[in-house]
Design a protein around this nucleic acid. Sequence first.
DNA 1: CACGAGACCTGTTCGC
DNA 2: TGCGAACAGGTCTCGT
Length: 276
Amino acid sequence: MPELPEVETIANALRCGGRGGPALLGRCICRGCLMWPRTLAEPAPAEFETRIGGQAIRDINRRGKFLIFRLQADSMLVHLRMSGDLLVEPQTAPIAPHHRLVLDLDGELRLAFNDPRKFGRVWLVADPQRILAELGPEPLDPALSANQFYERLQRTHRQLKPLLLDQTFIAGLGNIYTDEALHLAGLHPLHNSHHLDRTQAAGLLASIRTVLEEGIQRQGASIDWVYRGGDFQNYFRVYQRTGQPCPVCGTTVERIVIGQRGTHFCRVCQPAPKGE
DNA sequence: CACGAGACCTGTTCGC
DNA sequence: TGCGAACAGGTCTCGT
């Protein structure tokens, strides 16, 4: 799914205008209509449709991979998972095949949640913290220090790849940016988090920040058939570059499976930890 | 606690 | 050309 940079790009576009759409701040949600009921995590569809009507959009933000719409009385949280997207279109447009939820806005506009794979979820809640409470720190938050990050790595004995994908450890990384960050940091994806020293931990945090900021600057990545406007996919170091040369040393990039996720790395830049 | 497999879904691409 | 298998940016739950 979209990862932190893609979600950030979408939040910015909806808040301030962009990606060809207008800003949504201040607009009122007149009506909600659900096409695929399981899209709604809570409340029940009937309550959702009555409760969201008439609420104005006060702000649009991101936390981890969640989009947060602060409304008058409630917050609407959207998780795009693997294939979700949010589109702003005229109310006169036909309902596209993969639209799962549409919100009619004032100004004859429509906010549509489009999600071919139906993994995405939407919540309408009074207190967003109840849903977001388990998320780990924001990687780009300056309050997250290298020392704190080192301590968090020390607290567990897990392989780096699945650990970085764990949203309770750090919020916002997905398969792309995890592979990219580990390559930039020169760390093998199977490296045990407990065995990193302080220098390696600081380097990993810095690498995570570098690849996320690059992703945001390039408006995210557009891969497969899902075009989202960004072009970070043209700057991948290892992700989806199996068999191609490592941009640093020229060694062939390899693909292995860790935790059922395709994992791309360079065996020279990211040497296997001792004992593996 | 750490890890692996299966589930939830549809669409595209790959290999024979 | 056709068909099944593998694969896809995520997360949850269960079993070991």
